[in-house]
Amino acid sequence: MHSRFVEMLQRNADHAAAFRTRFDDVQDSQRPGVVTVCCSDSRVLQDHIWGNEEPGDVFTCGNIGNRVVQRTDDGEVVSGDVLYPVEHTGTKTVVVVGHTGCGAVTATYDALTDGVSEPAGIEHCLDLLKPRLEAGVEALPDDVDRAGAINRLVEYNVDRQVEFLLDSDDIPDDVDVIGVVYDFQDVYSGERGEVHVINANGETAVETLRDDHEEIGGRIERLWQY
């Protein structure tokens, strides 16, 4: 068996010892306050970025491109893994988590501009992103470099995912939908590893967001007001 997996099992033993009593209140049910949908990326540790070590506190979902959309025979709907905690556990906050240098956004950008192809499974995911990023690609500033284009499209993608949730009848009006970007590439002005709020219930204007949410004003920042 691969040594890396053996090491993981050893670390899991430490985890089990530390968490032995932390499941007492959530063994039979869960009431997470927040559901996050994050991009699947080994550099983005979903629970760790929030400092979360409490089982039952955050319901985490992950896929490439932090998508909230899935296709069914009846059309596009809110992805079941995002909708489940809202529908069944009383969760009242959804957070869409993009990240700088996103590979899924990069692949979608390349597919839209150069027509590159991917294996069928990846292509399926990109096909869900393409219609949401296409207008963003066309609106990019002429003087932006490739890295700058990708990180602006990261924000654009988060905005479109938030928009889809807000437009869906499946998401109750009293659920907050927040869009953020996790930065580990020193793109934003804060510390490496900080989360930056770019969208709150569809509002994307930085000054308006700061006025409306003074308690987190220093964490509200955007690269692109398109």
Results as ranks from 00 to 15, higher is better:
Asp114Lys: 14
Val116Ala: 05
Thr89His: 15
His99Thr: 09
Ala16Arg: 08
Ile150Tyr: 05
Glu54Thr: 13
Val78Ile: 04
Asp57Ile: 00
Arg219Leu: 09
Gly103Pro: 10
Gly179Thr: 01
Gln10Ala: 14
Gln161His: 00
Leu166Ile: 12
His213Arg: 12
Arg160Gln: 15
His124Cys: 03
Gly65Met: 01
Leu128His: 11
Leu166Arg: 15
Glu155His: 00
Asp183Met: 07
Ala139Gly: 05
Leu112Val: 06
Ala16Ser: 08
Gly218His: 13
Lys92Thr: 02
Thr21Gly: 05
Arg152Val: 04
Glu7Phe: 02
His124Arg: 14
Thr113Phe: 07
Tyr226Asn: 13
Gly179Ser: 02
Glu194Gln: 09
Leu166Phe: 03
Ser79Asn: 14
Gly75Asp: 06
Gly217Asn: 08
Arg71His: 08
Gln70Ile: 05
Val97Glu: 02
Asp143Val: 04
Pro119Asn: 09
Gln30Leu: 15
Arg222Cys: 02
Gly190Trp: 09
Cys38Pro: 00
Asp127Ala: 09
Val58Glu: 04
Arg192Ile: 14
Arg219Val: 01
Leu126Cys: 07
Ile216Lys: 05
Leu140Phe: 06
Asn201Ala: 07
His48Ala: 14
Arg146Cys: 02
Gly65Ala: 10
Phe5His: 05
Ile216Leu: 03
Asp127Gln: 06
Leu126Arg: 07
His48Thr: 10
Arg146Phe: 11
Ile171Arg: 10
Tyr182His: 14
Arg222Ile: 03
Leu128Trp: 04
Glu118Lys: 12
Arg132Phe: 09
Arg11Leu: 07
Val158Arg: 02
Ser29Cys: 08
Pro32Asp: 08
